[in-house]
């Protein structure tokens, strides 16, 4: 144990600590290189583009315009409607997915028979190609060619996609169906790290199932829950495929990602589109920041006591 003491103090670090540092960087290096290689230039380029007026169809009209693209975006009511849509869809779908995912994780963990079947079938929705799943849901809810309207209690000609809120409802349902498995998987992995002995001890102490869940399960699963929530929220905020296939953003169901797509791809107005992307990025950063600060996702913590 002697080698662990920091004999160097403020004047320097011990050999062991230095070796640890080098090892740490070396282990991280391949991953870091893989991530930067692809994104350093494109992200930097996108930021630079957002400060210019660039439209591929009018190649002669380029030039630096400072923050005017951002001004155009932030002063447009369309942008704020889309932000509202995105926030609503994100909050509702992530909340439902967390609750459902937890229930599914518990079932997958504790099922007394057919575990393989349950675990596999829960994950299948996540494995279906996204555009196909969205199209299948769209087709199912279409008044003329779908089956939903032929169910009892539902009007035969209810136009699900003709009204903003029912369309958003179907979009959320499709998203929840598709990505609850993601949550369930991460939560299940978290569940498996809890030692059964704790439950036995609690039972002996007279705790019932609900108390065991809230006092033992939830607190011990906190890291897994936070990782799942963080990534799912960040992904949900950038929702694109499902909305595009169901309504293409009509009836005020457009999300910020569809807005970005329209500017960059349809209008080839790269300056404006890059500004939209950077703004999306900033908002997503704020969300991540909130997670880290408020909910205490402390990932970089090392050994206790250092």
């Amino acid at each position: 144990m002697a080698g662990r003491l920091r004999l160097g103090g403020r004047r320097g670090v011990t050999d062991r600590a230095r070796e640890e540092r080098r090892l740490g960087w070396m282990l991280c290096a391949p991953a870091v290189i893989a991530m930067l290689l692809v994104t350093a230039y494109p992200i930097g380029y996108a930021v630079v583009l957002s400060l210019q007026h660039i439209d591929l169809r009018f190649p002669d009209q380029g030039g630096w315009v400072g923050l005017s693209n951002y001004q155009t975006v932030l002063s447009s009511p369309l942008w704020w409607t889309d932000v509202l849509n995105t926030v609503i869809i994100t909050i509702i779908s992530v909340t439902i997915e967390l609750a459902l995912g937890m229930a599914l994780a518990l079932i997958m963990h504790r099922a007394i028979f057919g575990r393989g079947l349950v675990r596999t079938s829960v994950l299948i929705p996540y494995g279906i190609v996204t555009v196909v799943a969205a199209f299948a849901w769209f087709f199912a809810f279409d008044p003329s060619s779908g089956f939903v309207n032929q169910l009892p209690l539902i009007a035969d000609d209810k136009a699900w996609f003709g009204d903003r809120w029912s369309a958003i409802g179907v979009i959320i349902a499709a998203e929840v169906w598709k990505t609850t498995p993601f949550m369930a998987l991460l939560l299940l992995a978290g569940l498996t790290t809890i030692d059964d002995g704790l439950y036995e001890a609690a039972k002996v102490d007279g705790a019932n199932a609900v108390q065991r869940f809230f006092r033992i399960t939830l607190p011990l699963m906190k890291p897994a829950i936070l990782v799942a929530l963080l990534f799912r929220t960040l992904d949900a905020f950038r929702i694109f495929d499902t909305i595009f296939i169901m309504t293409r953003g009509a009836q005020n169901t457009e999300s910020v990602s569809i807005l970005g797509y329209n500017q960059i791809i349809s209008r080839t107005n790269l300056g404006l589109g890059s500004a939209v992307s950077v703004l999306i990025f900033i908002m997503v950063l704020l969300i991540a920041f909130a997670f880290v600060r408020l909910l205490g996702v402390r990932m970089a913590e090392g050994r206790p006591g250092t």
Binding site: P42, A46, L270, F281, V284, L285
Partner: peptide, 12 residues
């Protein structure tokens, strides 16, 4: 890196 909208990165 994971959060930046991919649509902006595919062109470059």
């Amino acid at each position: 890196i994971a959060m930046f909208p991919a649509i902006s990165t595919i062109g470059p």
